[in-house]
Design a protein around this nucleic acid. Structure first.
Lengths: 256, 256
DNA sequence: TCCAATTTCGTACGCTGTACGAAAATGACA
DNA sequence: TGTCATTTTCGTACAGCGTACGAAATTGGA
């Protein structure tokens, strides 16, 4: 019998699930009775990650995951409270796969590394962009990542708050580039045409429909882009350009 | 009988729908026979926008929109080819509601205006962030907007390609701030707690679970953030800080 | 051996977008 | 005015989703 009255547990249940491999010292108490679980949470999460990598986040359905193990769909709910929690577990688990390299001494190179690492990861697992919209996750691997990101901007001359905000700007920017790359790939997949093919196929309709409007700058810029790299956009160069400007701004701010 | 062989029309059908109010000079040919349509595409799109503003994009279902007009769900498909096309129409239409102010002379103020306008709009219509992921849209109001954005960075000393990339960085950043604001609001709605309440409710679990890990920088930064503004993040200040750094970087690049 | 605890999972519900085809409404023409 | 081709309306249906519920199966401890 407890002295303290039973107040409803307001704490997020998926927190313990996220940190299941690092809970203090003791192992999580195995169930004493009942059938042994046939798979593990990690296996389920890994299977879901595979599925998302291969076919996109929309293909990550409870039924599809369960089928990979020959389980019934509802069985997954004895491992994971619901689909959203699974997505968070996927995000943290895939984050843990990327090892965090030593940081170079040069501040500019440090910031570039933070952005490029995020960008590469999001290119490899584009579904992370969609998961991000579901919930901010506070898992062990994400925490490690954040600590590493902060260490990259530490000692440069930023205040504590500015350190956080600088990291946010950098990884946000990397995410935007990754997002535009994803959209470009998706558009090509949906339409079955490359970007330049799309513009060609729609040229007549566009010029007819835009006859009454005038876009001198957009035309000039669009022409320049088309000549520079047979497409309207080139995310790789956007990354280099934008990253250089942001880092310039940050380093100028701390007076270098 | 046509001389040219019938080649399948590869052009995007929703393009004509997007530009329905500006097609050259002549009106779109009204149907000669059959019942008159009871509503208009604009009314449908406006209703969908209202719904999205009030209850989020997930509430924008074909059935819900149709019900607003006392129509059957399938009736909408005589106005709009499918839901995705409707979302694009919504995005362009709501973009047209924001009037584009005169641009100030000062380059810094011009760039700030571009970012702030995007940010305010996304705050008022957060579902635009989700629509953006569906498809890049090329409607009349988005085209006007893009031309205006380019004019804001024109004459500053950027190349044509850099103009486009600069706009992309600015509005992408504004979008990221709006996204984190949206997530914060959503989290409070889902959990029923404010951010600081969440941290309080999960403090015990967190410190237990993170006992084996060390996050000196994250702790320092988190403490600083908590003291500065009773929360882990403050999007409004992130906007000011990041925007200043980005614009610094751009203006330094063109040598001012 | 028996029971309590736990996992497994079939069924079902409400929800989604939308394919299909019948029914209703309308303007043009005989 | 009657007829018909055209167009809009929309009821029904289907596949797929997350998941609530409850029964069945499995297991270790007493």
């Amino acid at each position: 019998m407890n002295d303290v009255p039973d107040q409803p547990d307001q704490s997020d249940p998926s927190l313990r699930l996220l940190w299941r491999h690092r809970t203090g010292a003791r192992e999580e108490p195995r169930a004493k009775r009942g059938p042994k679980q046939k798979v593990s949470v990690d296996e389920i999460v890994d299977a879901a990650i595979d599925l998302a990598d291969a076919e996109g986040l929309a293909a990550v359905t409870m039924r599809a995951i369960a089928q990979r193990f020959g389980l019934g769909a509802m069985t997954l709910y004895s491992y994971v409270p619901n689909r959203d929690a699974l997505l968070v577990l996927m995000a943290d688990q895939v984050t843990g796969r990327t090892e965090l390299p030593e940081l170079p001494a040069d501040p500019r190179k440090r910031l570039e590394l933070v952005a490029n690492l995020a960008h590469d990861e999001l290119r490899a697992h584009p579904w992370l962009l969609e998961v991000q919209d579901v919930r901010p996750w506070l898992g062990p691997n994400m925490s490690d990542r954040y600590e590493w990101q902060l260490s990259a901007v530490d000692g440069i001359g930023l205040t504590d708050l500015e350190m956080d905000q600088t990291v946010a700007v950098l990884i946000g920017f990397a995410g935007n580039i990754a997002r535009s790359e994803l959209m470009k790939r998706r558009a090509e997949q949906v339409t079955g045409m490359t970007e330049s093919q799309w513009w060609e196929a729609n040229y007549d309709t566009l010029s007819e429909v835009m006859a009454g409007s005038h876009y001198p700058l957009a035309n000039r810029v669009g022409t320049a882009a088309g000549e520079a790299y047979q497409a309207a956009t080139d995310p790789a160069r956007e990354l280099d350009y934008g990253l250089a400007r942001i880092i310039d701004g940050v380093l100028a701010h701390v007076g270098r």
